Amino acid sequence: MSFQMQSPLQQDSLADVLERILDKGIVIAGDISISLVGIELLTIRLRLLVATVDKAREMGINWWESDPRLCITQAPASDGSAALLDRLERIETQIGQLAAAREG
């Protein structure tokens, strides 16, 4: 008597599975906690969402639209670099004036 393995009626390719996951969205969540003698030393919380942009927007997730590092249409947040460059230019001008006054 011989046994034969029957294959499933439908074999999904990786592309089909990925398309279904992106269409529906999948959330993977996990917490890592390191404790020593009952004292919590470190906690890492991991959250991963895999979905299409349209599905994420449908779920109310659109943080990339307002992140200045990811969005080229929005001006970067002011971090004082313009003021620092202005100050540096004024200092260089003053140094140049002092050097010219010493020479002449």
Results as ranks from 00 to 15, higher is better:
Ser13Trp: 04
Asp86Glu: 15
Leu42Cys: 00
Asn62Arg: 08
Ala75Ser: 07
Ile72Leu: 05
Glu40Tyr: 00
Gln4Asn: 07
Gly80Ser: 02
Ile28Gln: 06
Asn62Ala: 10
Arg45His: 15
Pro8Cys: 11
Lys24Asp: 04
Ile72Gln: 06
Arg87Cys: 03
Trp63Tyr: 11
Phe3Thr: 08
Leu84Lys: 15
Leu48Val: 13
Asp12Asn: 11
Ala77Val: 10
Leu85Asn: 12
Ala82Pro: 01
Asp79Met: 07
Leu14Gly: 09
Ala100Cys: 02
Ala82Tyr: 06
Ala51Gln: 03
Gln10Val: 14
Arg47Lys: 10
Ser7Thr: 08
Gly60Pro: 04
Ala82Phe: 07
Asp16Tyr: 05
Leu41Asp: 02
Gly60Lys: 04
Ser81Trp: 08
Thr73Tyr: 14
Ile72Asp: 06
Val53Ile: 07
Lys24His: 07
Ser78Asp: 15
Thr73Val: 06
Ala83Thr: 02
Ser13Leu: 10
Ser2Asp: 02
Trp63Gln: 07
Leu9Ala: 13
Trp64Val: 10
Trp64Asp: 15
Gln74Gly: 00
Ser78Asn: 15
Arg47Val: 14
Ser66Tyr: 00
Asp54Trp: 03
Ser35Asn: 11
Ala100Gly: 04
Ser35Lys: 04
Val37Asp: 11
Gly60Phe: 01
Ile44Thr: 07
Gln6His: 02
Ser7Leu: 10
Asp67Gly: 02
Gly96Asp: 09
Lys55Glu: 05
Gln74Tyr: 03
Leu41Lys: 04
Ile34Asn: 04
Ile61Gln: 05
Ile28Leu: 12
Asp31Met: 11
Ile44Gln: 12
Leu49His: 15
Ala77Glu: 06
Val37Glu: 01
Ala75His: 05
Gly30Thr: 06
Gly60Glu: 03
Leu46Val: 15
Arg69Ile: 01
Val17Tyr: 05
Glu58Arg: 03
Asn62Trp: 00
Ser78Tyr: 09
Val53Thr: 13
Ala101Gln: 13
Leu85Ala: 15
Ile28Trp: 02
Ile72Ser: 10
Gly96Glu: 06
Arg102Lys: 12
Ala77Asp: 05
Glu89Val: 08
Asn62Leu: 00
Leu42Val: 14
